[in-house]
Design a protein around this nucleic acid. Structure first.
Lengths: 349, 349
DNA sequence: GTGAAAGCGCTAACAG
DNA sequence: CTGTTAGCGCTTTCAC
């Protein structure tokens, strides 16, 4: 490992004071163009590069922001949420010359320790917490410390003073329900997700509202709130398809369940969209590889991350800022996994 | 933001010198148990926490390792490689009390700048480079700097002095080919991936070797090296299925192409595994959600990351260490997407 | 055993 | 405009 060039080395070689070098580096207007040129030349010649630690120590800023992953690394392994949201955060941070620091812990306690280390150890200027969860220690801790942070998702407990970024899931579910209703469907099922996640309960609400507004009945059997795995997924799908009044359309909460559903339908020789409509939340480029052109709801994960980063920066710049809540709009990406209910089918319904 | 407690504050309150507090923190054996107890009490009372920047400045170590993502964040968005490998790295780092720092740049140049900042700015003690690519500036730079780093993948140019972790892709492809050959297949296609990636050319080699060893012919039309997208994928698949001597088995390089293939086969009413065998590289839990129980090759991504982290630590501890190359074994996960060629079919072949 | 002092590389008054 | 000085919070000789 090469020994590095310090400001002092440069100062000596350029015959100026270290502070002058520092000023040149920061392009201070109080330095003459002549000295700047001279110093810059030496800077380049010697291959100088800032020691961030030293700078951080004196400026008390780190030019880094922390990302708290909860134990969700596993959860989000399947869908592109995790890399996508980090890309969003990264995009913004990059523009600001900031770097990212990830928690590495797997257990809740380990993660909490990571966060404490980041915060108390002054390793980051702000934090972004991915996902919100009940009975979480991290968020209350950050609040207590008065440390700038932003939550992606919706705070579970109604703690005030939290800036958070999320989608309007009620609205999104309402829109997508209205869309399906507009096609003429009356029997619409809601598939997937555990109601303990705010995301799901919000979407459920939007769905119910749209159905109510359209004067459509929602039998409890149409709502399947299940964990994300093959077994439970298959059971729920079988249950739904086995109903005497089986749904003609499915609102699916997750791409994976969507894939599972398409598989089952194919096996049963039920054509999508000719016989069944499917709309799936959480768009991803992955769906292009499916043989069925699935209609999806894009939650704009990248933008979620980008805006979160932006908010943290605002908070860092102005710690007394009022908390706020930014909603990232969702968008229905219409493809052909649904059908307008034709006269013939309508008669049968 | 609360003002933080320093060693001096603690020293004052405990009536000892700052150096003593430092020694207590590091549990130096030269300090009496009595003072230790006293100081530890104050430490706890005041909620002291180390300022890592200050420590890093003097010790010249950062307790952090950097991860270079190339522009691959996008590439690996689809498959779980990225989160999985980071989990692996994180697992090890966590045990050692290290944190992770990610590059945020999107373009090659931006990423290179990130790396320079990390290295020269002394923000990390070592680096892990995910994926290897031709004409890359990062690896040569790290070598020139003598900075400890490990590559996940196989160096493209034959630069010596690189420690790298990868799978034995030749071996893996050979095994999986032998497996398929063992089932009685004679017409086996190789689908996907660009040959500029070492991964792919290695696998191709293994496949060829196995075919040769079995005395089987490999017509060039059976080998489709294509970029990972829907259009090219569909075309390749159509070409293959359109051959007068169409393959009875497919070795697919990527889960996505596997999904695409299954879709096409389903549309053509060709049953997997009854009529066509499919084996797919890069296992992921995702495949459980597919209706076809796909046989896959597990490349043990998590372990790839874990071992890479381990190697970086070794390198940091002993910078003069000889470079080495660790191969993570692969494993065929057998499910039902293949068939043993029965007498009837054999006669037709 | 413990304290005093120097200094890691940088920035930020304060002089001049 | 530029140099001098004094730290940021910590570790680490070197004394005592």
């Amino acid at each position: 490992m090469k020994m590095s060039v310090t400001i002092k080395d440069v100062a000596k070689k350029a015959n100026v004071a270290p502070s002058t070098v520092s000023r040149v580096i920061h392009n201070s207007p109080t330095i003459s163009e002549k000295t700047k040129r001279k110093v810059r030349k030496v800077l380049k010649e010697m291959g100088y590069h800032m020691n961030e630690n030293a700078r951080n120590l004196v400026t008390k800023s780190t030019k880094a922001i922390g990302i708290v992953m909860k134990s969700s690394a596993r959860e989000s392994l399947y869908n592109p949420f995790f890399p996508e949201v980090i890309r969003g955060i990264g995009d913004f941070c990059n523009k600001e010359g900031y770097s990212l620091s990830l928690t590495t812990g797997e257990t809740e306690d380990a993660i909490f320790e990571d966060v404490v280390k980041m915060v108390q150890g002054r390793r980051v200027d702000g934090m972004i917490v991915l996902y919100s969860k009940k009975d979480d220690k991290v968020v209350p801790y950050l609040i207590k410390q008065g440390f700038p942070f932003v939550l992606i998702g919706k705070p579970s407990t109604n703690l005030s003073g939290i800036t958070f970024i999320d989608n309007d899931n009620v609205q999104a579910a309402m829109e997508v329900s209205e869309f399906v209703i507009g096609l003429g469907h009356k029997r619409i099922a809601f598939l997937g997700g555990s109601p303990e996640f705010e995301v799901i309960s919000d979407r459920l609400m939007g769905y119910q509202q749209a159905m109510d507004a359209a004067g459509l009945d929602v039998p409890q059997e149409y709502i399947k709130l299940i964990p994300l795995n093959r077994t439970d997924g298959l059971k729920a799908i079988d249950d739904l398809l086995g109903l005497k009044e089986a749904p003609t359309a499915f609102l699916v909460m997750d791409l994976l369940l969507g894939v599972l559903l398409l598989g089952v339908l194919a096996e049963k020789n039920m054509k999508v969209p000719q016989q069944i409509s499917v709309v799936c939340f959480n768009h991803s480029e992955f769906i292009e590889f499916l043989s069925t052109p699935l209609t999806t709801v894009d939650i704009h994960t990248h933008q979620l991350g980008y805006e979160a980063a932006k908010c943290v920066f605002d908070l860092i710049a102005n710690p007394e800022m009022m908390e706020k809540n930014i909603r990232i709009p969702t968008k229905i990406i219409k493809r052909e996994s649904h059908f307008a209910v034709g006269e013939e089918l309508k008669r049968k319904m």
